[in-house]
């Protein structure tokens, strides 16, 4: 977690508190913010339109070779925008198992 990683000796802190590694927030998994509910896509209904992808505030969907989209539980905060905006109602929010 970020807090632990920030605890470094002063000499090791990059100049002026600059962050040297681009996009390293990826290491911070926001998936555990979900309150036990996650989106599931029904491939039968999916028309590969990409609404889930372009409307995701957490970039939790990525393109697949076959045109479908992969969902990434590491970052999905479970907001449900994708389910709401799916034009074919192919995405449903389902309860997650413990």
């Amino acid at each position: 977690m970020a807090k632990v990683e920030a605890m470094m000796p002063w000499k090791d802190v990059p100049l002026g508190g600059t962050i040297l590694e681009p996009g390293n927030a990826r290491k911070f998994k926001t998936g555990d913010w979900r309150s036990k509910i996650r989106p599931v896509t029904d491939k039968e209904k999916c028309i590969k339109c990409g609404m889930c992808w372009i409307f995701c505030p957490d970039m939790a969907y990525t393109h697949r070779e076959d045109g479908y989209f992969d969902w990434n539980g590491d970052y999905c905060k479970g907001c449900g925008i994708c389910a709401k905006e799916c034009p074919k109602d192919a995405i449903t929010m389902v309860a997650e198992e413990e």
């Binding site: 002063w10 802190v13 100049l15 002026g16 962050i19 681009p22």
Partner: peptide, 26 residues
């Protein structure tokens, strides 16, 4: 260090209590 697309850095990041003093010490 500079803002360079070839080597992107983030300047002026949010400093929590865990790192603020270390930056000031520098």
């Amino acid at each position: 260090l500079r803002l360079d697309p070839e080597k992107p850095v983030s300047m002026g990041a949010f400093g929590s209590p865990e790192v603020f003093i270390e930056v000031k010490k520098q």
